[in-house]
């Protein structure tokens, strides 16, 4: 990059960071790749609504075929102060998408002087997925969940997506990844409207545990290393990710419940 990007009225890229990147010869999602890479979507991430907002959670395992390549992968990211994106799919493109998405939201906010609405953010992510469709066709699919606290409506909201950029708002919960079937069933059976944050967190932990129990590509709690699935909460106060210690405590409570039930 050599000089300051200054545009005439006709060619101004506006608030779209992707257009600006492409204008400067940086294409974050190249879609003219030959061949096919089967990257799978080995993961469990989920989001569920609670009385004060939403809980977003995800396991920490990354796999390459039958090998575990990372034990402390982060799959839940704050998109901005009041929203989060959780990813399943090919790790490289997924992390890239999260990065560009985060930058896009902040870029819009700075150019326009006010942030996008939650709906606008969800549509923006759908647009990026649509742009990634050629890559998805070649095996590098990304299937995220987007959740946040809608300040205008004073409620938590969550969105599920498909690889074509289809955007589906869910009322109760959303899951994604190879363990999503198991996690989804657990959340479905335990879900009630107006769960407290604590109840929603324990339900998320229960769902992640069962997913890890059934799905080889989903990692469970790892007390020896002190690595626990990521738990995060978004309320009117903003996004907060629980520390490994806090997450470990929720798992410890779940273990007591599990042992007591035997």
């Amino acid at each position: 990059m050599s000089s300051i990007p200054f545009f005439g009225p006709g060619e101004d890229p506006g608030t779209d960071f992707l257009t600006l990147l492409k204008h400067n010869g940086l294409d974050p999602f190249p879609n003219d790749l030959p061949g096919f890479i089967d990257a799978g979507h080995a993961t469990t991430v989920l989001a569920l609504r609670c009385a004060d907002g939403v809980v977003v959670a995800g396991d920490r395992r990354a796999t390459a075929g039958h090998l575990i390549s990372h034990r402390d992968m982060q799959k839940v990211f704050p998109a901005d102060d009041h929203s989060a994106v959780a990813i399943a799919g090919a790790a490289g493109p997924a992390l890239q998408m999260v990065r560009v998405f985060q930058l896009q939201l902040e870029y819009y906010e700075k150019i326009e002087g006010k942030p996008l609405t939650l709906e606008g953010k969800a549509n923006q992510l759908a647009e990026m997925l649509r742009g990634n469709l050629p890559q998805a066709m070649q095996g590098l699919a990304v299937v995220p969940i987007f959740a946040g606290y809608d300040e205008a409506r004073a409620t938590g909201r969550l969105f599920q997506f498909d690889v074509t950029g289809g955007r589906y708002e869910e009322q109760d919960y959303a899951t994604s990844g190879s363990g999503s079937l198991h996690a989804g069933t657990v959340v479905k059976l335990g879900f009630q409207s107006d769960l407290s944050t604590e109840e929603a967190l324990s339900l998320a932990v229960k769902a992640l545990w069962h997913a890890a129990d059934e799905d080889s590509a989903t990692g469970g709690p790892d007390p020896i290393r002190g690595i626990y699935p990521v738990l995060s909460v978004i309320t009117a106060d903003g996004f907060r990710q629980l520390s490994d210690d806090e997450s470990g405590e929720v798992f410890a409570t779940f273990r007591e419940e599990l042992n007591g039930g035997e």
């Binding site: 300051i4 990007p5 990147l21 930058l103 700075k110």
Partner: peptide, 26 residues
């Protein structure tokens, strides 16, 4: 133009590489 310059530089390199001196020169 400044926001764009900073965001592009931070994307291409790292957030710590964006500084006021180079922006002022631009």
């Amino acid at each position: 133009a400044g926001v764009r310059y900073a965001e592009l530089k931070g994307y291409q390199y790292s957030r710590e590489d964006v500084d006021a001196r180079s922006l002022a020169n631009q």
